[in-house]
Amino acid sequence: IGDNGAQALSEALKANRILTILGLRDNSMGPKGAQALSEVLITNKTLTTLNLSFNLIRPNGAQALSETLKVNSALTTLDLRCSSIGPNGTQALSEALKINSTLTTLELYGSSIGDSGAHMLSDSLRTNRTLTTLNLGYNSIGNDGAQALFEALKANTTLTTLDLHDNSIGNSGAQALSEALKANWALTTLNLRKNSIGPIGAQALSEELKTKRILITLDLYGNPIGYMGEEAIHQALQTTECNIKF
C-alpha cells in the first residue's frame, strides 16, 4: 500500500471507533506512512495492536511513533521487526518507554540496533513497569549491549520474556546474566539461541539456575557450549524446574 495507502488509512482511523488490530506487515511503507499513522494514534483510543514489521519506516518513522507512545493510552503491542529503525530510532523508542504506561509487547527483531541501541533500551527498562515482552533477536548485540540489558534486569520487575537469539553474546554476557538472575524474579523466558556462549558461560548460568525458585525457560540451542557446558546443564537440571534447551 505504500505511504499513500497508509495516509488514506490514517484518515479513516480518525473516525473509526471499532478497529483494535491493524496489520500492515510488508507493505512498502516508509517514514511518511508511519508518521501519518502516528498522528492519528495520538487521539485514537481503540487500536491496541499495530504491526508495521518488514516496512522501511527507518529512524524518522520510529521517532514519530515514539512521540505518539508518550501520549497514547490504548496501544499494547507494537511490531517493528525488520523496519530499519537503527540506533537513532531505538533511542526515540527508549525515551517513550520511560513515559508510556500501556505497551506490553515490543518487537524489534532485525532492527539493526547494535550495542548502542541495547544500552538505550536498558535505561528505559530500569523504570518501565508495563513492558512484559521484548524481542531483540538478530540485532548485532554483543557482550557490551547484553551486559547493559542484564544490569537493567536487576531493577526491572515486569519483563517476563526477553528474546536475544542470533546475536553475538559470549561468555561475559552470560556471566552478567547469571548475576542479574540473582536479583530478578520476573523473567520466565529467555531466548539466547545461536549466540557465542561457550562452556564458561554455560557453567555460570547453570550454577545460578540451580537456585531459581521460579520456572524459567532458557534456550541455548546453537551456542558452542561444548562437553563441559552440557555437563553443567545436566547437573543443573537435576535440582531445578527450569526448562533448558541446548
Rank of each mutant, 00 (worst) to 15 (best):
G2D: 06
N4R: 07
A6L: 03
Q7P: 00
A8V: 14
L9H: 02
S10D: 01
K14Q: 15
L24P: 12
M29H: 06
P31L: 10
P31M: 09
G33Y: 02
A34G: 15
A34Q: 09
Q35C: 07
Q35W: 00
S38C: 06
E39M: 07
V40R: 02
L41E: 04
L41Y: 02
I42H: 11
I42Y: 13
N44D: 02
K45G: 01
L50R: 01
L52W: 09
R58F: 02
R58A: 11
R58V: 05
R58E: 14
A62H: 03
Q63D: 05
T68W: 08
L69W: 12
V71W: 00
N72G: 03
L75R: 06
L75A: 09
T76L: 00
T76Y: 02
S83H: 05
N88G: 01
A92M: 06
L93I: 00
E95K: 15
A96H: 08
A96F: 13
I99W: 02
T104S: 15
T104P: 07
E107Q: 10
E107G: 05
G114V: 01
D115Q: 01
D115S: 09
S116M: 02
G117T: 08
H119D: 09
M120D: 13
L121Y: 12
L121N: 04
S122M: 08
R126V: 12
T127H: 01
T127A: 12
L134E: 05
L136F: 01
G137L: 05
N139Y: 06
A146F: 02
F150P: 05
L153M: 13
K154H: 13
A155Q: 12
T157G: 01
L159Y: 04
D163C: 00
D163V: 10
H165S: 09
D166Y: 15
G170Y: 01
N171D: 15
N171Q: 08
S172W: 08
A174H: 11
S178N: 08
W185I: 00
L187C: 10
T189G: 02
L190S: 09
N191P: 07
S196K: 14
S196A: 13
I200S: 15
G201L: 03
A204D: 07
A204N: 05
E208W: 12
E208K: 15
T211H: 12
K212H: 14
I216G: 09
I216V: 14
I216K: 12
T217I: 10
T217V: 08
N223K: 09
M228T: 03
L237N: 08
T239G: 01
T240I: 06
C242W: 04
